[in-house]
Computed example of a mutant assay.
Amino acid sequence: MTHTLKTLATSSMLALAVFSAAPAVALDEQQKKEMGAFIREYLIENPEILIEAQNALEAKQQSKRVEQSMKGIADNRQQIFSSPTDITLGNPKGDVTVVEFFDYNCGYCKRALSDMDDILAKDNNVRFILKEFPILGPDSLAAHRVANAVRLLAPEKYAQFHRTLLGAEEHASEATAVAVATSLGLSEAAIRKSMAEKPNDDIVRQAYQLANSIGITGTPTYILGDEAVFGAVGSEVIEEKVANVRACGKATC
């Protein structure tokens, strides 16, 4: 370390000590300028410190996010894994449950649709719950209202409805969702009657509350065991976490 850097380090530590031990003692203008010059010189000569600080900040934020998600999951297990308003695909008595928060207009959810199908095709002991989470505007909310009507009127057709609407390239809306539902044999009049009489406002509100508790800000987000998995991470990552839940009861052993 050069003499200048040693001086800087010593001065910085002394300044911190002064600020910590005696907050009432303030640097005069000249001391502030000298301290500022020392810090500026040190950072210019050692810019990697800024990267280290950024990495440390991101790690701290991620740690807090994981802590929040685990607490949110622990506090809301009944609503997450056993809500009567959710649709379950795969094995309803499977030994591992995967919960997916999704939006019909989420591009990443569309790409992740094949991940769900791959998992269900390979593993006949997975219970897969679809958690409707419309966050991408009025059209998403309307499409999910239609989906709720399908769930109520013909739950046996929901899986096909879900795959068709989510797998479509076009933007999801009330009109496109109704078109998918009627193509499966449902009556448009019955759909609209169900939407009017039994809207899914409470279901959506509960999903928002759960997401807020867990720290979910986007889709898709998966819940496995005690852990939230954020983003379209791919079927291999989900399969690995399913195996972990079987092995140790947690998504990460």
Rank of each mutant, 00 (worst) to 15 (best):
R127M: 01
A24T: 12
T7A: 12
C109V: 06
F81D: 01
F19E: 12
L43A: 08
E67I: 05
I51H: 10
K64T: 07
V146D: 01
A21Y: 09
E188L: 08
E132R: 11
Y208N: 13
A24S: 13
S187Q: 05
N55L: 14
A21N: 14
K122C: 01
T219M: 12
E48T: 13
A179D: 12
K32I: 14
H3E: 15
G185M: 09
V18C: 12
I216T: 07
C248Q: 07
R65H: 07
E240Q: 15
E188D: 09
I44E: 11
Q54D: 10
G167K: 12
R77V: 05
Q68R: 13
D118S: 15
L8T: 14
R111I: 12
F19Y: 10
L16D: 07
G185R: 10
S83V: 01
L224D: 00
D139R: 05
S213T: 07
S12F: 14
S187Y: 11
M116I: 09
I73F: 03
D95C: 01
F128Y: 15
K32D: 07
A228R: 07
H171T: 10
L8F: 14
A196C: 06
Y108R: 08
L120P: 00
I39H: 06
D28P: 03
P84Q: 04
L27C: 05
A172P: 02
S12A: 15
E236L: 11
V178T: 09
L8G: 08
K250R: 12
S235M: 05
I119R: 00
N212D: 15
A121L: 08
N76E: 06
N105K: 04
A154S: 15
G107W: 07
E45Y: 02
K60A: 15
T2M: 09
